[in-house]
Structure formats: structure tokens, C-alpha cells
Amino acid sequence: MAGLLLSPTEKVFIVHGVQDDHRSDGRTNIDYRPMELETNVVSHATGSSRLRLANTDILVGVKTEIDVPTPEKPDLGKIEFYVDCSANAAPQFEGRGGEQLAIGIAKLMQAAYHSSDAFDLKQLCIFEGKQCWKIYVDILILECGGNLCDAVSMAVKAALFNTKLPSVKAALMDGGNIDLQLSDDPYDAKSLDIGTAPLLVTLCKIGDKCVVDPSAEEESCSVISVVVGVTGNPSSYSTEENVSDSAKESKFTTIEMVGSGSVAPKTLKDAMNQGMVAAKLLDKALGEALLRERQETQVKTKKHSYGFLR
């Protein structure tokens, strides 16, 4: 990662620590670092969130537009991800320096959200074959402290949770053109159904073992990590009891290897299983945090938000 220099001895220290399930910051191999999450931080966006995972800082803004669905899929909306690596995070990102990393993350997100088990694009349909919502998810990386993929996926899910689409009051057909009338009441809006939206978990192979949530130092000790995208559990994101008691099984929506190394088949399988467990726990924790925040805003007990000044 960005401009980080570690001596061979320091690397050995980290590798040996991981081997003994005790990392340099006191965590075990399956622990995450503390996170701060805040939603509704950007006033001009339809939904937004900011996530700080130790030194990693992600800001996500969601914008919605009305678009024409593709002829192949007339009943589906669209979702697109853009990642911007700000030069504030690292001087290397200046100009087109962060492009490769940004494209990589955006591609991972797109792949993770591709399946309807992960995110149902049908809910973005307004008028089949004519009009649909298009969601632009703009991800801004403000600071890099390792483990970008996980942080990005969580921030995106929080921002989508925060997104409200105005309800359509009427759609008038006028000579083949659609004339939409949207409600201008800010409270007359529907939330997106994002319970199943996937979270990405990075398993960083250090030595023979895999760790979750690697810090920038740990990332530099590893040549390969496995990123898995796992669907969420909708019951964690809803206060209603009856919602989907079926408790959908978590599924992999994407698996990819990041880095230049290779792994043994058994390590890969172990990493996948470990990622699945981590993703389930993470998803539950994220759901609780989001519901708590929503409740606090509803009853106005939420302490004043200071945005970036804290």
C-alpha cells in the first residue's frame, strides 16, 4: 500500500504473530478493527454514508436518475458503481495513479451486485420497458488504511439503506412517451430493499493462515488475498418480525483472488468458509447499527451530527 516501508524484520514479526493467532494490534485472526458509521451525511445525495474503519475512510453518495431499461431486460433497473481514489489518500493516486485500484474495486462491487439474489433490480422498475431508476453509487476513498473492499461494501450497503426513492404518483402515456409524476413530499418515499445486498470480505493470506480485515502493514506482508462477496440476511435489516422468516441462506455472489501470488486448493477452501462466517457476523452487526441509527433519527434522540468535524 501507499508509500509504506517495512523492514524484513518487521515483516517476520507480523508473519509470526499471525501464525500464533495474535496480531500486532492485539487482534486475533478473525477480528475486525473498530468502525464508525454514519448515514445521511451528504445533503445533495439521495442516500449517503461515511465509514471509518481504523484508518480507512470511505464516503459513499448515491444519486438516482430515471433511465430507459435495456431491451434485453425490460423489467430491470440499473445500478452502477464508480470508485474514486482521492489523491488525499495517497500521493500515488494523483492524476490517473489510482485508476487501476478504482476499476478493480468497482468491478468487484458490480460482480457482487450482479445476481438478483444479492440485489433485486426489479424494485427499480417504474414502467416496464419504458422507464426505470438508475442508481449511481459513487464511492470516494478519502484515506487508505488497508482492507478497502470490506469497507467499501459496508459503506455502500449503508448508503443504499439510507436511499429513498420518491414514489411515482402517476405515469401518463402520451403518444408513446411516458410522463411521470413524482411525489414532491420528502416523506412520501420508499426505501430500497437491500437486506440481501452483499458484503465483501477480504481474506489476506499471511504465512499459511488467512486473516480478516488486514491493516496496511499486514497487506504489504501478503502476496495474495481472496475476496468473497456474500449475500446478507434480510431479517437483520428490518424491524418487522414477519419479514422473511425463511432466513435466506447466505450465498457467494462473487469470489476473486487479488494479488500476484497463488494458493493451495485447501487454503482457498478454508478461506472461503472463513469469509462466509465473517460476512454473516459483519452483516448482522451492520444491520443492528443501521436500525439503531434509523430509530434514533425517528425519535430525534440522535446526537447532533458534526459531519467531518468531530
Binding site: 445476481s115 449475500t231 441462506e249 457467494f252 497463488s262 477452501k269 472461503m272
Partner: peptide
């Protein structure tokens, strides 16, 4: 890399549970 018994790249897209992925991996190997 068959002689070294290493996997140099693995890409999955779609929606699959653990068992299905593991089975597919074995077939692929």
C-alpha cells in the same frame, strides 16, 4: 499450476452456496 498444486486464479460470479462452490472447485481441479 498442476505440478506445484497451486491455484493461480479463481473467479466466481453468480449466486451459489458453499457446497455448490466446493463441488464445482473439485470438478474444475
Amino acid at each position: 499450476l498442476s505440478e506445484l498444486k497451486q491455484i493461480s486464479d479463481f473467479i466466481q460470479i453468480g449466486s451459489m452456496d458453499v457446497v455448490s462452490v466446493t463441488n464445482a472447485m473439485e470438478v474444475l481441479e
